[in-house]
């Protein structure tokens, strides 16, 4: 399988661990990531606040380049419906690219003027030709849990993982995202496939603060604190994330949050691809471990300390049937909920 790859600015440096581990996981799972030539920034959440047309043109350049590189000649990048597939691991990039493609399809005036601007750079984009997908969604749906499981050689037994989605992958709903905008379960299923223990994390799609760390730090600290507190309450060893902005805010600002609130959170924030790599038996060094500010050392020790348990399946904890009191409503995932 071959996909266009749009790493985005974060993955160049500050989220390099995500890029490194993504490429490593791709090698193991046998899919090819073909980087978009000379891609530019997606504008994050900033450009659209200043100038709509410039923002759409900025994103449009990427889409136009992707159309040229992956759609025009196909080369095995096409989805079944004929669209060229472009994978973005960063949630903000994913949303900007996906949303621009969608609104350019809906809004004829915006499409025409965006193309007028693109023409000044010798480019053109036909909305609907590029299928923007998030890395997690692609792995879950195209590769599949079974295939992932087949490559697990060192299950992450005993590691308690809080799965954190943040916002921009699951919202707004533009079609083709994960199962739910508030309570998706794909990341949990994947983590479980890796042998880890999934903890309940009610705030899993709450906001990490986004750019508020820059603009109004107190607002952001409070949002970060809620997430760290919630994951700590459920005794998570690590938070696993799918977005560089979430990783940055929860990881780099954890110390500041502790100072600000007098707390002592100590939760490593890892990319899901890093956990995948570990379970595939890859060396932590080759997965960008060590770049996190809150060290993942303890988590690594926890997994490696119990090599004899590696073969044993992760303990499943059925919901406790209380003898007294009123019965709880039946839930589809009853057996899976951790007490």
């Amino acid at each position: 399988m071959k996909y266009g790859y749009y790493p985005g600015c974060s993955l160049e440096r500050n989220a390099a661990a995500y890029d490194i581990s993504t490429r490593a996981v791709a090698r193991t799972l046998g899919f090819e990531l073909d980087e978009l030539d000379d891609w530019n920034c997606c504008g994050a959440t900033e450009y659209i606040a200043i100038n709509k047309l410039a923002a759409y043109s900025l994103i449009g350049r990427n889409l136009a380049l992707a159309q040229q590189q992956f759609h025009a000649n196909g080369n095995g990048h096409l989805a079944a419906d004929g669209r060229a597939q472009l994978i973005a691991p960063c949630s903000a990039c994913f949303l900007n690219l996906r949303k621009a493609d969608r609104y350019l399809q809906e809004d004829a005036k915006l499409r025409d003027t965006t193309n007028e601007a693109l023409a000044a750079g010798g480019l053109h984009y036909d909305p609907g030709t590029v299928f923007v997908r998030h890395l997690l969604e692609m792995i879950v749906n195209d590769v599949g849990y079974d295939e992932v499981k087949r490559h697990v050689t060192k299950p992450l037994n005993g590691l308690r993982v809080a799965s954190y989605y943040g916002c921009l992958l699951v919202r707004p709903r533009l079609g083709g995202e994960l199962s739910d905008a508030e309570y998706p379960t794909e990341l949990e299923s994947l983590t479980k496939t890796l042998g880890a223990e999934v903890v309940d994390f009610p705030l899993k799609t709450h906001c990490c603060g986004g750019h508020m760390t820059q603009i109004s730090a107190e607002v952001a600290y409070e949002l970060i604190r809620r997430l760290l507190q919630n994951a700590t309450e459920y005794r998570a060893d690590v938070i696993v994330t799918i977005c560089p902005m979430c990783q940055l805010n929860l990881d780099a600002y954890q110390t500041r949050v502790n100072q600000h609130f007098g707390t002592n959170f100590n939760l490593p924030i890892l990319y899901f691809t890093q956990l995948m790599g570990l379970a595939f038996g890859l060396e932590p060094k080759t997965l960008g471990f060590g770049k996190e500010i809150v060290s993942a050392e303890n988590a690594l020790i926890k997994i490696q300390r119990s090599p004899e348990s590696a073969a044993a399946p992760a303990p499943s904890r059925p919901r406790k049937k209380k003898e007294e009191g009123l019965p709880m409503p039946r839930m589809p995932e009853d057996e899976e909920v951790t007490a």
Partner: peptide, 14 residues
């Protein structure tokens, strides 16, 4: 250069 031209054009239209 191309990106610059694109963004300038977009701003001009705006």
């Amino acid at each position: 250069d191309g990106l610059h031209a694109i963004l300038e054009k977009a701003k001009a239209i705006t």
